[in-house]
Amino acid sequence: MPFSAPTDFLHITSLDDMPSELKGGVVAIGNFDGVHRGHQAVLNTALETGSTLDAPVYAMSFEPHPRSFFNPANPVFRLTPSAQKASVLAACGLNGIVELPFTKEFASIEADHFVEDILLSKMGIRHAVTGYDFHFGKARAGTPDFLRQAGQTHDFGVTIVAQETDEGTETISSSRIRDCLKAGEITLANALLGYRWFFESKVQHGDKRGRDLGYPTANLQLAENCPLKHGVYAVRVVLDDGTVCDGVASYGRRPMFDNGAPLFEVFLFDFTGDLYGRTLKVHVVSHLRGEETFDSVEALIAQMNRDSDEARAILASLHPLSALDHTLFPQSLG
């Protein structure tokens, strides 16, 4: 079964279903793809405000991603699809998410109507928190300054959170993290996220070639537009029954064999059992090397043995990247 947020986390997809538990609350508004450290600054500000006001705190987001809506031929790769985003937001301590359908009609709502009809009439907010670059409403007319003025006019609080940078003073953004995945810089991507990036996928049947090599793998399909660099990775995997396994994975086209469609093939250490049809949650920890071809199957197996040893060593010495990582990422196999 798919992984999800805790049952007390509210995942609302229609304003007609706006629960009383969230009304009068503090809303953090944004796309929040990846829920990275920049987003977390917005969420933490909302949580602090909610604590001061003794009010519920939730996120407001949109599906599909507005950039994908306006350019469907080139959809944005989602670092955290809807269910995964909800699970990260729940781990951050929020009470829920209001995830509104981003449609042509929604995109045409005037900024003042967005405030009056949605934030106030339907959601009954007491306070709104957004990032410095968030815009809303038709033609993106709802600027941070517009929201501040609307708060003064309608008597609700507004906090605009400044740009968040990393230790090198570069801006933390979802686009930058996607670029890191494309370059195989998974350690940097995880540092910018503040937790180990993960995805969920159902195990599908393959050609069983890994079994013949002594490395039976669980074959997983990533999104077609996933930019992750082809290569070999150390991973920690959560099975759908809660079992945690370490492993090594190869993502690519298998140039020594069929050079086919990209697959993420995971070999789980010290595991026996049937995984076909089960959903795995894969935390990608470290990039070991790029995809290669070898002179012989024997040379390939020898390299796979070295990859496994390196992955085991990396996974045995991990420490949490943050409190959020401690919550999301299994810290041991126990």
Rank of each mutant, 00 (worst) to 15 (best):
I97D: 01
G194L: 00
G124K: 03
F114C: 06
A299N: 11
N95S: 13
Q221P: 10
V161C: 11
F146N: 00
E185M: 14
L15A: 11
D117V: 06
L193W: 08
S61E: 05
S68D: 06
L213G: 14
E99T: 09
G194R: 09
V88G: 01
A55C: 07
K208D: 13
D155L: 13
T279R: 13
F9S: 09
A128L: 06
A91H: 04
S68C: 00
D295C: 10
N74P: 05
T52E: 12
A90I: 01
E291K: 04
G252V: 02
G194N: 07
R78H: 04
G210W: 04
L275N: 06
I172P: 03
G168H: 15
G210V: 12
D307R: 06
A128G: 07
A249P: 04
T293V: 10
E63D: 12
E200I: 00
P72M: 05
D8Y: 10
T171Y: 13
V35N: 11
S108V: 08
A128P: 05
R37Q: 15
L94M: 07
L315D: 07
V129A: 10
K208N: 15
L228P: 06
K138H: 13
G214V: 01
Q149M: 08
C180W: 02
A234F: 09
L89R: 01
G24D: 08
G334I: 11
D207V: 10
D145H: 12
V76F: 06
D179H: 14
G214F: 02
S286W: 12
P64W: 01
T243V: 14
V248Y: 00
A28G: 04
A218T: 09
D212H: 15
S173P: 09
L268C: 02
Y233P: 04
F3T: 03
Y276P: 00
V284T: 10
S20L: 12
I314M: 10
E63I: 14
L89M: 06
L288C: 05
T130A: 08
A59H: 01
C245L: 08
C180H: 11
N71H: 11
L192Y: 15
G38Y: 14
L324D: 03
L280D: 12
D207K: 12
L43D: 14
G25M: 08
G231L: 02
A55N: 03
D112A: 14
A218P: 13
R126S: 15
R196E: 03
K281A: 03
C245D: 08
F102Q: 01
H11M: 11
H230C: 13
D241Q: 11
S20K: 04
G131R: 00
V26N: 02
V57D: 00
R126V: 11
T49S: 08
R196I: 00
L333D: 14
